[in-house]
């Protein structure tokens, strides 16, 4: 943590200075172009998604806007243009690396592999990978899935996770893959799969939006616990310092909890459903002590 404190201190020191000329990396880019580009997701419910007018909204969009405010203050430029760029799980890392986006406000798991290419803000959400099933199926645990078709989405970490569980517990699933979460859920809905393994916040959103939410349930112990964080470019201490300071501050003052309540415990657009998704203990602990630990540190028991 000392390294982080150093960063924080240097960021604070920098922000005490007056001249903009001192900035480098992303902050310099933002200052030069007078614009900041946020990478957003179109259907990462309710972290980052589009409302009925195709406007990006969500918990992480709000967090990012707070960071944008901090950037404006830091650069003493209240008129930064904020651009939004839709990204997918496929292109978010390359787009961050190549400079298309400056902050990714989606639902990206912070893990060691990704840290080779990008950096992360302190964790702002913790998701549990679990499974959605039809209540009528009576399935309550992973052990019930032997020989049965189980859905997950192409190009997500859950694919490898299922492989790991299959091996670890010697259960033989018949994996089926949807090209996006909507397709994977449709597989569950149409009985192509008996379970859908995915991040629980996404599953909760899909169930709440489905034709008959009461038919489905989230069951089983988490297959994995994953810290979800806003992503930024690597090797950019100045910008990282600013982002970390901003989010840590929000966590400590309770601003972050307020945002959480707004998106997870109250009716949200477009249909005004309420996810009723109480804050996990892991996230409560993070609110008290923010950090950017990777997923590997959450799943050490396995």
């Amino acid at each position: 943590m000392t390294k982080f404190h150093l960063l924080l201190a240097s960021a604070l020191l920098c922000s005490l200075g007056t001249a903009q000329a001192q900035v480098d990396g992303t902050l310099k880019k933002i200052s030069d172009t007078k614009s900041i580009t946020l990478g957003i997701r179109e259907s990462s419910f309710p972290l980052s998604y589009l409302d009925a007018n195709q406007k990006p909204i969500g918990y992480h969009i709000d967090v990012c806007m707070a960071i944008v405010e901090a950037v404006k203050t830091r650069l003493q430029n209240p008129k930064l243009e904020v651009k939004m760029q839709a990204v997918t799980s496929q292109n978010r890392i390359p787009l961050m690396v190549n400079g298309t986006i400056d902050l990714e406000c989606g639902s990206t798991t912070n893990n060691l592999d990704r840290q080779k290419q990008v950096a992360f803000a302190p964790t702002t959400f913790v998701t549990n990978v679990r499974m959605a099933v039809k209540k009528a199926s009576g399935i309550t645990d992973l052990d019930h899935l032997g020989g049965k078709p189980v859905a997950t989405t192409t190009g997500t970490t859950s694919v490898a996770l299922m492989r790991a569980n299959e091996k670890g517990k010697s259960i033989d699933f018949k994996e089926v893959y949807g090209k996006d979460h909507a397709d994977s859920f449709l597989m569950l809905e149409t009985d192509r799969a008996v379970a859908f393994v995915m991040d629980d916040n996404l599953l909760a959103g899909l169930i709440a939006n489905s034709k008959s939410p009461s038919d489905y349930a989230l069951v089983g112990a988490p297959l994995s616990i994953e810290p979800i964080a806003i992503m930024l470019r690597k090797d950019d201490p100045q910008f990282k310092g600013l982002v970390h300071a901003t989010i840590s501050d929000m966590a400590k003052t309770g601003a972050l909890t307020k945002l959480y309540n707004k998106w997870f415990l109250a009716p949200i657009p477009p249909k005004g459903i309420n996810l009723n998704f109480a804050m996990s203990d892991a996230l409560k602990a993070l609110m008290a002590k923010p950090n950017d630990n990777p997923a590997e540190m959450y799943n050490t028991k396995k």
Binding site: I93, R114, V159
Partner: peptide, 10 residues
């Protein structure tokens, strides 16, 4: 190709 992008961390 898609799964590789994901599992190799990009």
């Amino acid at each position: 190709s898609r799964q590789m992008v994901e599992e190799t961390g990009g």
